Amino acid sequence: MLYVKVKTEDGEELVLEVEGMTEDEIREELAKAGFKIEEIEVYEVEP
């Protein structure tokens, strides 16, 4: 499983499960949803 931890400019932290997306695609999708991203951390969790 691939997850991203996202910190927004307003200090909110989100953890999202993503599969088959690049970091650029993740940033693009979050921007479309109205999030202003300060930091993204991508990590993989073994089942």
Rank of each mutant, 00 (worst) to 15 (best):
I40H: 01
Y3R: 15
K5N: 02
E46K: 11
E46Y: 15
Y3F: 10
V6N: 00
E46H: 12
K5L: 06
E12V: 12
Y3A: 14
E39H: 10
T22H: 03
E41S: 08
E17N: 07
V15N: 05
Y3K: 15
G34R: 02
E19G: 11
E39N: 10
I37T: 07
E44D: 12
V45M: 10
E38S: 12
D10Y: 07
E44P: 12
E28G: 07
E46T: 09
P47T: 09
K32P: 00
D10C: 12
D10Q: 07
I37P: 13
E23G: 06
D10I: 04
R27S: 02
R27H: 03
R27T: 04
F35M: 05
E13M: 12
E29K: 12
V6L: 07
E28L: 09
E12T: 13
T8Y: 07
V45C: 10
V42K: 03
T8G: 07
E17C: 15
L14F: 15
V4E: 01
K36F: 06
E19F: 15
M1N: 10
K36E: 06
G34P: 02
G11R: 01
L30C: 05
V42N: 03
V6I: 13
G11V: 01
K7E: 05
D24M: 10
E23L: 15
A31D: 04
T8A: 05
E28D: 08
L14P: 00
G11S: 02
E38F: 13
M1D: 04
I26Y: 01
E29G: 06
E44N: 09
E13F: 14
Y43Q: 04
K32I: 04
E17P: 07
E13Y: 15
V45F: 11
T8L: 14
G34N: 02
T22C: 06
L2P: 01
M21W: 08
L2N: 08
D10M: 06
K32R: 10
T8R: 05
A31Q: 10
E23D: 05
I37Q: 11
K36P: 05
R27G: 02
E25R: 05
D10K: 07
M1R: 15
E39F: 13
K5D: 02
G34A: 01
E41V: 11
I26L: 06
L2Q: 10
L30H: 00
I37N: 09
E41C: 13
E13G: 03
I26F: 03
E23W: 12
M21G: 06
E9T: 12
L16M: 09
L14H: 06
V45T: 10
D24Y: 08
E28N: 11
P47K: 08
E17G: 06
G20R: 08
V6P: 00
E23T: 08
A33E: 05
G11H: 02
E39I: 14
M1I: 13
E41N: 08
E25W: 04
D24P: 06
V6E: 00
A31F: 09
D10T: 09
I37C: 08
M21F: 07
V42P: 03
E46W: 14
F35T: 01
E44H: 12
P47A: 08
K7R: 10
E25K: 05
T22M: 04
F35I: 09
T8N: 06
E41I: 13
R27P: 00
A33Y: 13
K36T: 08
M21Y: 10
Y43G: 04
G11C: 10
K7H: 09
V15Q: 04
V45W: 11
I26C: 04
P47N: 07
A31I: 12
E41Y: 14
T22Y: 03
E12H: 11
K32M: 06
E12F: 13
M1Q: 08
I37F: 09
T8F: 13
E28V: 10
P47Q: 07
Y43I: 10
E28S: 08
A33N: 06
G20P: 03
G20K: 06
L30G: 01
V15G: 02
D24S: 11
A33W: 13
Y3C: 15
E25T: 04
E13T: 12
R27Q: 02
V4Y: 05
V15D: 03
V15A: 03
L14K: 04
E9K: 13
V18F: 15
Y43K: 04
V45P: 08
E25M: 06
G34D: 02
G34W: 02
L2F: 14
V18W: 06
E9C: 14
K7S: 07
G11M: 02
K36N: 09
E25N: 04
L2R: 15
Y43M: 10
R27M: 09
A31W: 06
K36Q: 08
E9H: 10
G20S: 05
A31K: 08
R27L: 10
V45I: 11
A33K: 12
L30Y: 04
E44S: 09
L2D: 04
G20D: 04
Y43C: 11
L2A: 06
M21A: 05
L16R: 01
P47F: 07
V18L: 06
I40M: 08
I26A: 03
E38D: 10
